[in-house]
Design a protein around this nucleic acid. Structure first.
Length: 331
DNA sequence: TGCATTTGACCTCG
DNA sequence: CGAGGTCAAATGCA
């Protein structure tokens, strides 16, 4: 993704939306920074606030991605939203066979399972965390697959409200083979559902007791912060399990002098995540860990802030100043 | 009993 | 043609 393509394809309205979302994200990040920089031990309500702030930031980024995604299309690509068409509709077309009463073993010519289009959506982003995260949405596991060169399967989740509300959000969860193991969660598509289980995207009332006051963030004791300098985001230093991942082509330059708070790089491609080595899921326990953590039966607002990776070339679009403020480059 | 998970089959894409 | 993604019957669980 290049700036030029953005400027060519994005309408003025879209640009305004993008800027608006980014501004909001910046403000939220600033709020988060203030919380993080607080030397005192975090209070429960502060942790909850951080949680919800992060969620909002993610949502802002998601909105930006959506806009950029659609912007690309307006630029001549007639492709529909990759994540919203397709795959999706096994029910809307003849792919879904008549419900045969055949046993699964019977060669079911009519049973066109797997009728979908493999994702190509740029509208994806990923998080890497030291533990399976609860993002507050209701997910339902619909598949598990052994992936080449990985020791453990990848788990597939879709929004519980896929059918009742047509929500197309899906995600994949993999456990990496790193030490310590990290959980890579790849989100595809955005929630269009109004999920009652989803924690509000707003700051919770600080006066109300957090549901998971002792574990909104789960951080392991062993630090995986790989930064060799002291110059890392306070949140990383505060939460040792945060793993920094630098964009491959990242190089310090004048227009991206990242302050300590900005080593928060979005990777252009999810494939970058795969370079970290074989990914695994908890093998013997299958989805126990994951499915438990992601079960839609929970309303936990636990959110682990570890890493968010985007699918756009973030660095081409954004820059940061010494204040840690994010800027949009010539969009 | 209803809903979530498991798991092998099936399908599409690269 | 193989890998990856999805489906749906079988199964588990509360």
């Amino acid at each position: 993704m290049e700036c030029s393509s953005f400027s060519e394809s994005l309408s003025i309205i879209d640009r305004k939306k993008v800027v608006g979302e980014l501004i909001e994200g910046r403000e939220l990040a600033s709020q988060l920074q203030l919380l993080i920089q607080n030397k005192k031990p975090l209070q429960d309500h502060e942790i909850v606030k951080m949680d919800t702030t992060v969620t909002k930031i993610l949502q802002s980024f998601g909105n930006v991605l959506s806009i950029l995604d659609s912007g690309e299309m307006t630029g001549g690509d007639v492709c529909n939203s990759p994540m919203t068409t397709q795959a999706s509709s096994p029910f809307s077309d003849d792919l879904k066979s008549v419900d045969s009463n055949d046993k699964r073993k019977i060669p079911a010519v009519k049973d066109r399972r797997g009728g979908y289009k493999r994702r190509k959506s740029p509208n994806t982003w990923a998080r890497i965390s030291s533990k399976p995260t609860e993002d507050g949405y209701a997910w339902r596991k619909y598949g598990q697959k052994e992936i080449l060169n990985t020791n453990h399967p990848r788990n597939y989740f879709r929004c519980t409200h896929k059918f009742d509300q047509g929500c197309q959000a899906t995600k994949q969860v993999q456990k990496t083979d790193e030490d310590p193991p990290m959980y890579q969660t790849t989100y595809m598509g955005h929630h269009t559902c109004t999920d009652p289980l989803k924690p509000p995207q707003l700051i919770l009332d600080p006066t109300s007791p957090p549901p998971n006051s002792n574990s909104v963030f789960n951080f392991e004791s062993n630090s995986t912060v790989t930064s060799s300098t002291q110059d890392y985001h306070p949140i990383f230093s505060s939460f040792p399990s945060f793993k920094l991942e630098y964009e491959q082509n990242y190089k310090p330059s004048t227009d991206r002098q990242l302050s300590s708070s900005n080593q928060f790089i979005l990777s252009p491609e999810l494939s970058a995540l795969d370079s970290s080595g074989p990914t695994t899921m908890s093998g013997s326990d299958h989805g126990d860990v994951i499915s438990g953590a992601y079960s839609c039966t929970t309303s936990s607002e636990k959110l682990e802030l570890d890493l968010v990776l985007g699918s756009i070339d973030f660095d081409d679009v954004f820059s940061f100043d010494e204040e840690g403020m994010m800027h949009v480059k010539s969009v």
